[in-house]
Amino acid sequence: MEDKSRISKAIQLIAQLSIDRASQVFSKMVKCGAKISLEKVYLTDITKATEEIAIEGGEVIGAYIDLVGDAPFKFLITFETNDSLLLTDLILQRPTGSTKELDALTQSAVQEVGNILASAISNVFSSDFQIKMKPSPPQVVHDFAATLFEEYISAIAAESNEILIIESQFMVVRHNLKCAMYILPLKGSDKTLSYICNTI
């Protein structure tokens, strides 16, 4: 069994590379200075994780994507409802404030940001570690932040009392866009993570 600290280092490295790549494509997508930075990588109890999100509250639009292949991961990106309107304006290069209503277009803005960022992460696995991974079509949900997060971790939480959270922070120049992005390794990705340990 691989040393846990080495697997943690592998995950940190993967997380950093993935977020760096995601940051580049996100900046290109919103066509202005934007950066995604790796906030933290940590193991936490499922109850504690969901309590904290429940306290923060909020209503969000989220895109769920399964990364399937040699290293199955689950990906979730969420935007506060109002920020999804701003996101739509940035992507379509409209004056901010143009998008006023939450509709299919706004939801697809979140959908496509999720698709592109999840793909960027799978591209890192492919290019840097020769590991085959591809995203599933995104599923977009508009709901309470805690509900989305609960559904997101349910695949792991059934069997494990702890989850690994890879959390990142979005910064967009001149705009205060609040977004959360999570990457969750699933059962079956351990072998691949061990393989990565041995190559770094």
């Binding site: 499922i46 309590e51 429940a54 306290i55 805690a146 609960e150 939480a157």
Partner: peptide
Amino acid sequence: TMTDNVLIVGIADIKTGKAPFLIKTTLGS
């Protein structure tokens, strides 16, 4: 976990108490 008289319940958790506490949670499936 409490703020004033509020208990927050996370996933896979039990919280009990007495008046005047409020117990809150958010659910999906």
